[in-house]
């Protein structure tokens, strides 16, 4: 297989690491030295070779371990995966989209053989070889959405589209930045975004919704979002805040380089053809400050972004108390030199 999969953990001993290759392809989210909300959508039609944008569903060295972590979360809390009764067709849509995409994009890792409704799916990294009947739920060990998202990195929200709005009516959410599917299930676009500061006043959500409603088959879109996480935790859910919230207090000037992570979400949007729903995959990438500052441009820029971020945003993103320590760590890497445009390393 072309990808060497890490054996690592996102809890307990936190053995998660990024290889040099993973650092080089990390989706650094800041295209300039400051940050403010923007709809910042672009077409999701590939990207530079080797980048996380190249394939429809990026598979990387963390794949196998991330899927194991998802299994642990689901065993403890099955409500991380929910689908309202009318969303079954959308689940099949998602299964088809992912299987077709992965088999085409990673033929050495995944195979899909179709003979009418009789399908056979081979997932080599996870040692799965499953024959099933498309649209017959009884032939799979789980519902179609759960089945395929137990084998795909990132969280998945399936949004039903009706009454000129989007409704969070199904999802698999185990690697989230402090929001809960169990709380948001059945909500519409404005309801589930209600806690976000500033963006409502800026009219961001009205514009974003208008854009999303018009995403069509054949023209998927993407954007990045970001936050900060202490320790390489995938599961920073409200349900488990009592476990991970306290870890924010464990940062010291000595360990911050290893323990403070920049968490970047690649958010993509695909229209699902058979159900007319919209799927919203949210893929989480983690990099600690020590690895991040190995790219001088990123170090300079992250320092400036964190320094100048409005208080409301730093509070919402959950690192207001640790901001001074983060800045102390980053400041020596910012020599005041100008940075080049765009996100890529110089």
């Amino acid at each position: 297989m072309t990808i060497q999969f890490n054996d690592e953990s996102f809890r307990g001993e936190y053995t998660f690491t990024n290889s040099d290759h993973a650092i080089k392809r990390f989706p650094f989210p800041f295209h300039e030295d400051s940050y403010m909300y923007a709809v910042n959508m672009e077409q999701h039609q590939g990207g530079p070779e080797g980048s996380i944008y190249e394939k429809r569903f990026d598979v990387d060295e963390h794949y196998v371990s991330e899927m194991y972590d998802r299994k642990l979360v689901l065993t403890e809390d099955p409500l991380r995966c929910q689908s309202l009764p009318h969303m079954v067709m959308a689940g099949w849509d998602l299964l088809e989209l992912i299987m077709v995409s992965k088999a085409e994009d990673y033929p050495d890792l995944f195979e899909l053989h179709r003979d009418g409704a009789n399908w056979r799916w081979v997932n080599k990294p996870l040692s799965i070889d499953q024959s099933f009947v498309f649209l017959d739920e009884t032939t799979l060990p789980y519902g179609p959405m759960e089945y395929i998202t137990r084998q795909t990195q990132g969280d998945f929200c399936i949004l039903d589209q009706r009454n000129d709005n989007l409704w969070m009516d199904a999802g698999m959410v185990t690697t989230q930045a402090d929001w809960s599917l169990d709380f948001d299930i059945g909500m519409n676009f404005f309801e589930w975004h209600a806690p976000v500061p500033k963006a409502h006043e800026m009219g961001i959500f009205i514009r974003a919704l208008k854009f999303l409603l018009s995403i069509q088959q054949g023209t998927p879109a993407r954007r990045l979002n970001w936050t900060m996480t202490v320790n390489p935790l995938l599961d920073t859910s409200p349900e488990n805040y009592h476990k991970w919230g306290v870890q924010k207090r464990t940062l010291t000037p000595e360990n911050i380089g290893q323990k403070q992570y920049l968490r970047v979400e690649l958010q993509t949007f695909f229209r699902l053809p058979r159900s007319n729903a919209l799927v919203f995959p949210i893929r989480c990438y983690l990099i600690n400050l020590e690895d991040l500052v190995s790219v001088p441009k990123w170090a300079r820029r992250l320092h400036r972004v964190i320094r100048d971020l409005p208080i409301e945003l730093a509070t919402y993103k959950g690192f207001i108390d640790n901001r001074p320590m983060i800045l102390d760590y980053l400041a020596p890497f910012d020599d005041g030199q100008p940075t080049s445009d765009g996100v890529w390393p110089d």
């Binding site: 009764p85 009318h86 969303m87 067709m89 039903d160 589209q161 009706r162 069509q216 088959q217 054949g218 023209t219 053809p273 159900s275 007319n276």
Partner: peptide
């Protein structure tokens, strides 16, 4: 590509 502005409400 097909565009659906008159979708069934599957509920």
């Amino acid at each position: 590509y097909p565009v659906n502005l008159f979708s069934l409400d599957l509920r």
